Simulated scan of single mutants.
Amino acid sequence: MDQFYDRLPLQSAFGTLSNPARYTPLPEDWFVGASDIVGSTQAIAEGRYKTVNMIGAAVISAQINAAAGQAFPFVFGGDGAAFACPPERAETASHALAAVQCWAGEEFGLQLRVAMVPVSAIRKAGRDVAVARYQASGDVDYAMFSGGGLSWAEAEMKQGRFNLPRAGAGTQPDLTGLSCRWSPIKARNGQILSVLIQPEEGAEAVKVAALIDAVLKVVGDLDRNGHPTPAEGPDAGWPPAGADIEARATHGKLTVGKRKRQILFETFMAWVLIKTGLKVGGFDARGYARTVAENADFRKFDDGLKMTLDCDDATAARLTAVLETARMAGTIRYGTHSQSEALMTCIVPSMQRDDHVHFIDGAAGGYTQAATQIKSGSA
């Protein structure tokens, strides 16, 4: 079993990850998996943002289940996801990725692009994929990526290169643990701001790192660095708004109706326990909600910086001024999108453990909409 990712050090200071020296290049024989939803902007305009996020998280959920406990680097992008795997897992990972593509089309009528790209091909093109492990909490860490390789792989995928063969009709991925049960997270300070920052082609790494440091300094003035989830955890309203989508995503051999009834019962019990503070069988629902907040992935390095922030208008204006100055200097490209709520999509292998992961995006398109707003300093 490849031990590369297991041996990477866990890094607890998010700000240090603007330094490229904190990252380790992937082994030459590894693969990068890429995915994104065709027409995601239109789907979001139609109000299908929960579905878009669910499909993006499903890519990761299927890989986690296929990996059977082996840790690997992955990143959630809103309307898709990316990951990396060693060569001995490439075939299994490809099958899981193709299964999600089939499922997304048959269950939700959305086309998911999928590709597996050799790291060697990325390096031959003059890019790289380097990773670091950021410890978000005592039980969860997330991969951070640098080198431009993920962006290159996604661009190649969109051109029809490295695409995977389609799975047979009816192929179902294993999405055990995937859920969408928390209520939308309302902004407490004025707005939920989605921010996407990418280095401009040819920009000096030291200048990009300095810009990221300046951005994190501005964001550092926000409560908990702009974390959109309250420290006590998100609200568990009932019935959950995402019950239909989760039922369609995880019904397996059950009917959608039966799976939805299961979800409604489970979430009702959780809602009661959170509201009353009662503990059943040693399960502390309020403690679980606090852990959800600690484990949530609201900021990441993904060939640049992505953040979903609970932000006041004054801080948003300061942030925009810093970004615009850097754009004009030809250092970065950036996009932002403001909305009133954030969404959380979760992968929970077991509610008895604290290693569950939670992906946050803006509720009105978030990262997808920010990407459409990117302004280029070279334009």
Rank of each mutant, 00 (worst) to 15 (best):
M1R: 05
D6H: 14
F14D: 06
S18C: 15
N19Q: 12
T24L: 06
W30F: 12
A34L: 11
Q42C: 03
A43T: 00
N53V: 02
N53I: 03
F74C: 04
G78H: 03
D79G: 08
F83G: 00
P86I: 02
E91F: 03
S94E: 11
H95F: 13
H95A: 15
W103V: 02
E106Q: 13
E107W: 02
M116E: 07
P118T: 05
A121M: 03
R123C: 09
D128S: 09
V129A: 10
A132E: 02
S146G: 06
G147Q: 07
G148A: 03
S151R: 01
A155S: 12
Q159A: 15
L164N: 02
P165H: 05
G168H: 10
P173Y: 13
D174H: 11
R181V: 03
R181N: 01
W182Q: 00
S183M: 07
A187E: 08
R188D: 12
Q191R: 07
S194K: 04
I197N: 01
I197C: 02
G202F: 14
V206H: 15
V206K: 14
A209K: 08
A214R: 13
A214P: 01
V215C: 11
K217F: 15
V219E: 15
D221C: 11
D221Q: 14
D223A: 07
N225F: 11
T229D: 08
G233F: 08
E246D: 09
R248V: 06
A249Q: 12
T255Q: 07
V256H: 03
L264W: 12
L264M: 12
T267D: 12
F268I: 00
M269S: 09
A270F: 15
L273D: 06
I274F: 11
L278A: 07
K279R: 09
G281N: 06
G287C: 04
Y288F: 15
R290S: 10
D297W: 08
D297M: 03
C311W: 11
D312T: 03
D313F: 14
R327A: 10
G330Q: 01
T336N: 05
T345S: 10
C346D: 15
V348A: 10
S350Q: 10
R353P: 02
F359E: 01
A363F: 08
G366H: 11
T372W: 14
A379M: 09
